[in-house]
């Protein structure tokens, strides 16, 4: 019970800080909008191709703006010396991991709640459905778990933020692929069994990365 309270406290602290500064989430949302515009202009998407590429565009947009959140939520602690205080907290180190992951996840879900309606608006269709929300939650969960682990590692490197995408993207490509395929089946139609296959794959990826992260996180922030 205490463990969950620590997680929620870290999460709530981040949300309070964000409410006062409004720097991370606003950057994520604006960047997401920019990426969508870039896609539309770069490929001069016709209504037909726009429907076919919607899943890919949405996920790539989410991933790109996700890295902003991943980089910031932990590096603010390092820059302002908050990390020492967090490490001194009388709780298991993984509570810090889950607290930060929860913050990142909520940021990313908020970004998704912004991206999907905006994309629907631009293309005069309604993409939103509760199944899609489920797929987005599953996909972003795995992305955030892996991302929080690797960002806690990359921010201790000489090059800081620069290396996170290089480390993170290849690892999550299979997860992203499953998410994109599941999303495109939802948007364009497709067989239920195929959808289930991708969902199972997505779910197992989430579990694998969650297990690895919990096991190795305290080795990263040891000192």
């Amino acid at each position: 019970m205490d463990y969950i309270r620590v997680i929620l406290t870290i999460f709530w602290k981040d949300i309070l800080a964000e409410r006062r500064t409004r720097e991370i989430l606003s950057a994520m949302l604006v960047f997401a909008l920019v990426v969508i515009l870039l896609f539309v202009f770069a490929f001069d998407l016709s209504p037909e191709t726009r429907r076919n590429t919607a899943a890919g565009v949405i996920w790539v947009t989410l991933c790109f703006s996700g890295t902003i959140g991943l980089n910031r939520t932990l590096s603010v602690e390092k820059d302002r010396g908050g990390i020492d205080g967090l490490m001194l907290a009388p709780a298991d180190r993984t509570a810090l991991f889950f607290g930060k992951a929860l913050t990142n996840w909520v940021y990313m879900l908020l970004t998704a709640l912004f991206v999907v309606p905006i994309y629907s608006l631009f293309n005069n269709t309604n993409l939103f459905s509760f199944t899609l929300l489920g797929v987005i939650m599953l996909g972003t969960f795995g992305y955030i778990v892996t991302g929080t682990l690797l960002s806690s590692l990359s921010l201790q490197l000489r090059s800081r933020e620069m290396l996170l995408p290089v480390l993170l993207f290849p690892v999550v490509i299979p997860l992203l692929l499953s998410a994109i395929r599941a999303t495109s089946i939802l948007l364009e139609g497709g067989s239920q069994t195929e959808l289930n296959t991708w969902l199972v794959l997505l779910f197992s990826y989430d579990l694998i990365f969650l297990a690895i992260s919990v096991m190795v996180f305290d080795k990263i922030i040891e000192d």
């Binding site: 892996t146 682990l149 690797l150 590692l153 480390l167 694998i208 990365f209 190795v216 080795k219």
Partner: peptide
């Protein structure tokens, strides 16, 4: 760090 990444990457 390398050990952690070798484990994550092995998937």
């Amino acid at each position: 760090f390398s050990a952690v990444y070798a484990i994550v990457g092995f998937v």
